[in-house]
């Protein structure tokens, strides 16, 4: 232990003292500027001429408590739909991206179809896909038409699959050609090379943007309520219509944010890990 002991020079002691003073100073500045901005915001909002009315119609605690059970049970539908749609869209995106990389003349129609799919569904507004599927398909009056909820979920999967396919494709193309050369020179077939060498690296690399799209999907899942199913937003709407008070929307909004936080946290963590790995950590 004595070997490791080190007596700092006077210069180092002066430097350390200076840095400590600087840290204290920084904390003080940050605290006072935050306090000033917060006070300003509170004064501006609560001092507004219509504040009392807005507070009554948007932030009524009694109505919030009353609406909570209905909104929560609606949110449970959002969660289930999110899990199914995210899984479906990720799978569809991966399949489409892989189909687009297939070579050889026999796969031309497959490639062309996959490409036109990504073009179409990235261009088409989600709301139109939703109406076409949930209103148009049942209108055909075919035997065994799935319920509206499934059709709405399908619209989400089709739309998000298009985006996710492009993210996956970017990942596949980011794997360096030398990795392919190494795999092929070991005698691996094209398919084995994709499966064991390219895709594992591609998926790892694009995990952050993929998760980011899942966070966006989490919000858009609420749009299926346009076709009838009662999700959190629709439940809030119903409660609002009964009480003539908008507080249930605020409740739904807060719940959506709470739902997104863990997903966003995971995204940030994965992004950070990927960045560390890239820098050779």
């Amino acid at each position: 232990m004595t070997l490791l002991e080190h007596t700092p020079s006077p210069a180092q002691l002066r430097r350390s003292a200076y840095r400590r003073r600087q840290t204290v100073y920084s904390v003080l500045v940050a605290a006072s500027s935050t306090a000033a901005l917060g006070t300003l915001l509170v004064v501006a909002v609560t001092g507004a001429p219509g504040w009392d009315r807005v507070r009554r119609s948007f932030l009524d605690p009694e109505i919030a408590v009353d609406a909570l059970p209905a909104v929560l049970s609606g949110l449970w539908l959002n969660v289930r739909l999110l899990v199914c749609c995210a899984a479906g869209a990720l799978l569809l995106g991966l399949v489409i991206a892989v189909l687009r990389t297939l070579r050889g003349p026999i796969f031309f129609p497959v490639r062309a179809l996959a490409a036109s799919y990504t073009y179409t569904f990235r261009g088409l507004p989600l709301i139109i896909v939703l109406y076409l599927l949930t209103l148009g398909v049942p209108g055909l009056r075919l035997q065994g038409t799935p319920p509206v909820l499934v059709l709405g979920g399908l619209a989400l999967v089709l739309t998000y699959g298009g985006y996710l396919a492009e993210v996956f494709r970017a990942g596949i193309e980011s794997v360096h050609p030398s990795q392919l050369a190494a795999a092929r020179s070991l005698g691996l077939t094209y398919r084995q090379t994709m499966r064991h060498v390219v895709l594992p690296q591609a998926v790892r690399r694009v995990a952050p943007p993929l998760l980011n799209d899942v966070v966006a999907l989490q919000k858009d899942v609420g749009l299926v309520s346009l076709a009838g199913p009662i999700d959190a937003v629709r439940a809030a709407q119903i409660a609002t219509a009964q009480s003539f008070n908008y507080t249930p929307y605020v409740v739904a909004g807060v719940l959506f944010v709470l739902l997104a936080i863990p997903l966003i946290a995971v995204t940030d963590w994965v992004t950070l890990r990927a960045a560390r790995r890239q820098s050779g950590g």
């Binding site: 030398s178 990795q179 050369a181 190494a182 795999a183 092929r184 020179s185 070991l186 005698g187 691996l188 077939t189 060498v197 594992p200 690296q201 790892r204």
Partner: peptide, 21 residues
């Protein structure tokens, strides 16, 4: 079939090209 040929040949590259994952 090139895959069959490559199975009989070993190749080593300047930049190693190991699979990082």
């Amino acid at each position: 079939d090139p895959d069959r040929v490559r199975r009989r040949i070993g190749m080593v590259f300047q930049a190693y090209n190991l699979f990082p994952h």
